[in-house]
Design a protein around this nucleic acid. Sequence first.
DNA 1: CGGTAAGTTGAAAAATCTCAATCACGGTGG
DNA 2: CCACCGTGATTGAGATTTTTCAACTTACCG
Lengths: 294, 294
Amino acid sequence: MPFDTPSDASLAPLWAPLAASTQPPARPARASLTPPIVSQDAQRSIMDLKEKPTRMLKLDSLKVACSSCNLRELCLPVGLSRSNLEKLDQMVASRRSVKRGEALFHAGDPFQSLYAVRTGFFKTRVSSEDGRDQVTGFQMAGELLGLDAISQDRHTCDAVALEDSQVCVIPYHRLEELSREFTELQSSFHKIMSREIVRDHGVMLLLGSMRAEERLAAFLLNLTQRLQARGFSPSALILRMTREEIGSYLGLKLETVSRTFSKFQEDGLLEVKQRQIRILNEDGLRRLVNNSTC
Amino acid sequence: MPFDTPSDASLAPLWAPLAASTQPPARPARASLTPPIVSQDAQRSIMDLKEKPTRMLKLDSLKVACSSCNLRELCLPVGLSRSNLEKLDQMVASRRSVKRGEALFHAGDPFQSLYAVRTGFFKTRVSSEDGRDQVTGFQMAGELLGLDAISQDRHTCDAVALEDSQVCVIPYHRLEELSREFTELQSSFHKIMSREIVRDHGVMLLLGSMRAEERLAAFLLNLTQRLQARGFSPSALILRMTREEIGSYLGLKLETVSRTFSKFQEDGLLEVKQRQIRILNEDGLRRLVNNSTC
DNA sequence: CGGTAAGTTGAAAAATCTCAATCACGGTGG
DNA sequence: CCACCGTGATTGAGATTTTTCAACTTACCG
């Protein structure tokens, strides 16, 4: 099974190869991560068994338990003690499914809840008045969506599913309440927001100081690192986004992204078949990112 | 007094001209902002009078009162009721002076406190392993420094004073304690973190989708907007940073920044005398930012 | 008043973008 | 089952933007 990239992934794992000097060895790869996370479909069938729902649609309103979620090590509950973990269960009230291409929320929507990606894959996108778009991130399982909305009580970006996805709904006022009660949760939440800021700074470094090849290499390393944290192969992946979306994220045109993929293939760094990518020389990519002028 | 840009300024005022569609009219310019904030020197003399310190050096350890600070409408206490405001006074324990060119903290330093700029001007900067630098922001009076450090208990960027500055020290564990007690403070703090995320997204939009002229125009509009919120002229300013620092922030080389300033001057948009800038045609700048292809 | 850091300007090189043609693939309907 | 369609991906060639390198000017500090 070469290209094993099911629809899962994890929480705010910074631009490890970028923020580099500013952080420890990027948190020991989570070897302890429970059984490699199963695919979206597999998860669904487990759910079906356990909770005996009659139809997919009902799934959305099911009671959800962080305490028994296999993403808990990668999501908001990270670091919570068993007992506090169970208190989260009363907070995360429901799930919501979002079909590929649909938006979880749009810029301007009133803010009610944060969302934790449970399965699937999202992009977030900001737009300027004149219609310029910028993809600000790609979110996998365990990662939080909606943090930007806290500042104005409105979402400031669109979150669009890049494949059929499921999110856990985290009512924000409940989160604030609970985090006043439980120091651990407060601390977790603050760390998550702060991590988002650090991640954004890494992206600024990328956009502000790297050339095309370096950007794409950094992007791929970041993706595989996050996938690996979720139990996937560090060397084979299926891109969930188009060249244009990658380009928007990296501040490049889609043709430049495409050309750079081709160049990497010529150089023996990657095997590229449309969206199927295999990394043949990870160190080579890493050198590209780290040795600016070499 | 053409170039009246003393050493003050305010809190996380997004890239208003950028985040555009994603936010309301950018919060009504704070017309209510108490008396235009006084200059660094003026503030010092007020302090001298009130608290009767014998020497500048002692100033750092003086008890500080948010409740009587004229930046309270722009800083962490924003929106706090009078009574809660006074509770902040027990949290903000001290001040610290940072000379021009010195660092308030460095990447890697253990995290103890957040800092609110009281007077002066800072830049924050991240570095990658291979020595690439990226200026991630410029901070004026009322803005918070150190939010990135929460995620790892270490600072992840350098904060360097671009002129002699003073900050209020906010011990982070005290802030967490207090924000468990006071809903208002919790809410303020979360909004501030979120606003930083929104600001960063605006910078990504700038770096990812604008060309040199648009970036510089957006930068200038953002600066003047923040200065105006602090009671300064919206049309005349003195840059606190070098062309190189502007370039780093905007993802451009210093020569490109310089050339673009010259072009703006030729076009009658600005009057540029080294770091003294006068905006002659604000609408022109605004059009540059908003009409991508025009 | 000299030395140094910062800023400006020119010309050529390099990177990226634009426009255009073509290819690949997944889905659909005959 | 297969041809066709549409979206996404690739590739080429020329245009444009930005960078690089270098010379020169200006301002500030002691």
